[in-house]
Amino acid sequence: MKKIVLPGDIIADKPLRLDHTIVEEGKTCSTVIGMFDEAAGSLIPLEGLWYPQPGEKIVGIVEEAKLNTDVITLNAPYKGLIISKFSETSMVNGDIIEATVKELDKTGTIILVRPRVLYGGKVLAIKPSKVPRLLGKNDTMIRQITDGTKASISVGMNGLVWVKGGNSDLATDAIIRIQEESHVSGLTERIAKMVGSTGQPHQPQPQQQG
């Protein structure tokens, strides 16, 4: 049975090792609004923030490219840092990049490795809590969108999504719809219908002045 839990809700009368919970007086309590699955023992936040894990992919923007380090904006309560001597990619301020999280240090800085510059396109900011749904199981959801729209998409676990080429407007609409309906069943089918393999072009009609 899945159910919505809120901050402070007791989800077990014993201590559990579970993300987004705290243990007080031997009981496990949720700290967020989330979907708790007692059978599977999982708590998935419905709103909110990104907690970086080593190995995760991010999308970011170069805020300050310096000689030895590059500071990356991640649209998150953490700054990304790339140590340039370990990286052969050269960047300038304003570049969009994707990279991998190496570690989060105690001061709230994330060390990033393996950066790659993404040229052109645009960046969307979605709620980090919706990223897993956007990717889907084994990336099925995101593949559906790229297949249907022929757009190139790079999804960062921090909630920044880079979109370029193909029918990027339709891809954008689909991404926003997933964010809004992430917890409703049947989403995969609805998105399939939306980006359809029917090849329906979805272009907002240009309008004349006046």
Partner: peptide, 12 residues
């Protein structure tokens, strides 16, 4: 508002 933002809290 805080709970809706997903900021973790011990209680509401």
């Amino acid at each position: 508002a805080l709970a809706a933002s997903g900021i973790p809290m011990r209680d509401m």
